[in-house]
Nucleic acid binder design. Structure first.
Length: 382
DNA sequence: GGATCATGTCTCCCCATTCA
DNA sequence: TGAATGGGGAGACATGATCC
């Protein structure tokens, strides 16, 4: 895109000086950076009434500083040393976020329900046996982003009550998700969460390639293909609905998406004291009930995996083989082992988030174990 | 400290579609 | 009709955890 604007000699000299620092490749990158900074200033001023610039030392997590260690529980102190944070970068080192960004908090939601979209018609009826290739895409590997994005979409609907344009929503929410990731990484470090439990998994890490942000936008918020077909985690879980108007695709929450967004979150609403739970009991029960009633592919995935595990297919390889053998085949399609592993791993991780299945590590090997909730889920179905 | 395993994330290739 | 583009999917690579 090409934009033109008038600029006086003094401003031109400032831009030349910025380019001479070597930190910007051209005028466009310097201007883009300036506009982003202006946006941050506006948001900070709107929400907090002031902007505080801090040095890198000040920006380190307080738990790392000697004077605040006494207030950190012993278990958490030990665990701070155990897990290594994801690839540290200069940007990450300077990022300190005490709370979830406003857009993900309960306070950002409209008081009354926004206009909601109809429950999307699905291809599969309740109780259908869904081929592995038609389950939710395995790279939708966590459910916490679904909560975050329902909140964020509800927040955007306050400003745009007639529907949020899909590209705007994807861009805006994924940018905010980078800040959320920084906050969640801090919580992971504080609580000593390893890979299986990390809250920040699936969110785009700050300071890394913009492709991670794009991936988050496409996979976890929404994207439309050339034919206008919308995909993504929220669509797959029927928490979001969409419609076309004036050549644009607009997004709305479904009733389930709105209800899910409204439930208090132990992660996003804790204001710096978030505990180790991803979902409250109420959130987990709500999501599970919604999936059982309204999302046949996910319901079938959960029950197939729980049945296979109960029958002894409780390792990654044996579970993959069992699923490939026992789930229906899609005509004219052979699945590679890699794709089966991706589908299996994604579904198992989502089940872990909702408390149906746990990974038990025995040395380097993993066994899948149904939790009490998982056994109850299977019992209810049979 | 190297090897191994499981999983998460990123990149690239192939193919279908669109455009000139 | 060939070039350009975009998306889906598979594989590559990175990371964390553990064993020996």
């Amino acid at each position: 895109m090409i934009l033109c604007f008038n600029c006086d000699a003094e401003t031109k000299e400032v831009m030349d000086a910025l380019l001479r620092t070597g930190q910007y490749t051209d005028f466009a990158s310097a201007i883009a950076c300036a506009i982003r900074n202006l946006q941050v200033l506006h948001e900070e001023m709107a929400s907090k009434g002031a902007v505080v610039l801090r040095g890198v030392e000040d920006a380190k997590p307080s738990a790392d500083r000697e004077d605040s260690r006494a207030s950190v529980p012993a278990r958490a102190r030990q665990s701070q040393q155990a897990p290594k944070p994801r690839a540290a970068t200069s940007t990450q080192a300077e990022t300190r976020v005490d709370t979830a960004p406003d857009i993900f908090t309960l306070a950002a939601l409209p008081e009354d329900a926004p206009m909601l979209g109809p429950h999307p018609e699905g291809e599969w009826s309740s109780g259908a046996e869904v081929p592995l290739s038609r389950w939710l895409f395995g790279q939708y590997n966590r459910l916490l982003p679904a909560k975050a994005n329902c909140r964020a979409l509800a927040s955007l609907l306050r400003e745009m009550p007639d529907g949020v344009e899909i590209k705007f929503a994807a861009t805006r929410i994924s940018e905010q998700a980078v800040k959320l990731c920084a906050y969640l990484q801090q919580l992971d470090q504080l609580h000593g969460f390893g890979r299986d439990d990390a809250l920040a998994t699936a969110f785009p890490a700050p300071g890394r390639s913009s492709k991670g942000v794009l991936r988050y936008a496409n996979h976890f918020v929404a994207r439309a293909d050339a034919s206008g077909r919308v995909s993504g985690l929220l669509t797959g879980l029927k928490l979001m609905s969409h419609f076309s108007k004036g050549g644009k695709i607009l997004l709305l929450l479904t009733e389930a998406g709105w209800e899910f967004a409204r439930l208090p979150s132990p992660v996003f609403d804790a204001q710096g004291s978030a505990g180790p739970q991803k979902f409250s009991e109420e959130e987990a029960e709500f999501l599970l009930g919604h999936i059982k009633a309204n999302v046949p592919p996910e319901e079938y995935a959960y029950s197939s995996i729980l049945q296979a595990v109960a029958a002894g297919a409780d390792t990654p390889d044996s579970l993959g083989s069992a699923l490939a053998e026992k789930t229906p085949k899609e005509a004219g399609r052979d699945l590679s082992n890699g794709f089966i592993a991706s589908q299996r791993s994604g579904a198992v991780s989502r089940m872990g988030d909702i408390g149906l299945l746990a990974r038990a590590r025995e040395g380097v090997r993993v066994r899948y174990v149904a939790t009490a909730r998982g056994e109850a889920y299977l019992g209810d179905r049979e």
